[in-house]
Amino acid sequence: MIELLRVDHRLIHGQTGVFWTAHLHADCILICSDRLLQDPVRLSAVKLSKPMGVKLVIKNVADSIRVINSGVTDKYKLFIITEDNEYAFALMRGCGIKSCNLGSMMPTKERTHMLNEAFAASDDELASIRKMVDEGYELYLQKLPTTAKVDVREKL
């Protein structure tokens, strides 16, 4: 069962690997990323960051959708993490996931709109977020499980 889908540019780190995983009682983390699979150094670092006692699966977007829809992941308390809004939105549309935690996205030259202290978006990403909201998906900002959810519509 999918416990949470989170967008976080850092993928596995203290907040996701410790706080979120424990809060969700997740026994499997699925990293959904086309980019990560093309970066052997970063891929190795992510694998080393896996919390003890938790299964780690790393798939591209198409394979993630296929695996989730096949039912193979149903036996797990699944925590899905991706570093890209569009990957998350593809999962939502492709797998019937209705909500997504917008956790952390670092500001860049293009990502100049700060939706909160941890999540930046570009003009194109804001348009995509608006489209998902208009289609009826729940998108919310939440850094930690102990902080309140903020509906992204309040920040658009």
Rank of each mutant, 00 (worst) to 15 (best):
Y140G: 01
K149I: 00
D134M: 03
K149V: 00
S99W: 12
E86L: 11
L91R: 08
L4W: 04
I65Y: 12
A121H: 02
M132W: 03
G136Y: 06
T16A: 15
C100L: 08
R153L: 02
H25V: 03
G14P: 14
S122L: 05
D151S: 11
C28A: 14
T82F: 04
E110Y: 14
L144W: 04
W20D: 03
I97P: 05
H9P: 02
D151R: 09
K143S: 05
A45V: 15
K155P: 03
A90M: 12
D34E: 13
V57D: 07
D27F: 09
Y137R: 05
K50E: 14
L156T: 00
L11R: 06
Q142R: 05
D123V: 04
G53A: 10
D134K: 06
I97D: 06
E138L: 06
V72H: 05
I65N: 13
R153Y: 00
Q15Y: 07
M132V: 04
K109N: 10
V18M: 11
I80V: 11
K55P: 04
L56K: 10
A45Q: 15
T82G: 08
H13I: 06
N69E: 10
V67M: 14
H113L: 15
V57S: 05
A62R: 13
I2F: 15
K77E: 03
R66C: 05
R42V: 00
S122R: 07
T73A: 10
G14Q: 12
L5Y: 02
C32L: 04
M114W: 04
M1S: 13
K75P: 01
I81M: 06
S64M: 07
V41A: 13
I2T: 14
D27G: 07
K47H: 06
K143V: 00
Q15G: 06
K131S: 08
C28H: 13
A88C: 12
E117A: 11
D151M: 03
F79E: 11
D39C: 06
M1Y: 11
I2V: 15
L24Y: 06
L30S: 06
F19N: 07
V72Y: 12
V7T: 10
Y87V: 02
L43S: 12
K77H: 09
A118M: 15
R6G: 03
I80E: 04
I81L: 15
E135G: 03
S44Q: 13
C100W: 00
S64G: 09
I29L: 13
T147R: 12
T21A: 10
S64R: 02
V41S: 15
D123R: 10
I65A: 08
N101Y: 09
L36E: 05
N60I: 00
I129L: 15
R6S: 09
A26M: 10
L36M: 10
L36N: 02
R93M: 13
K155N: 05
R153D: 01
I29E: 07
M52K: 14
R111H: 09
V41H: 15
V57W: 03
D34Y: 11
L141K: 03
S122Q: 08
K143Y: 04
N116T: 07
C28N: 11
M114V: 03
D134T: 00
K143M: 11
R10N: 13
E3G: 09
K75F: 01
V46Y: 01
W20E: 07
D124M: 07
M114H: 10
V150N: 03
A26W: 06
V7N: 09
A120Q: 04
K131M: 07
M52W: 01
D8I: 00
I12P: 05
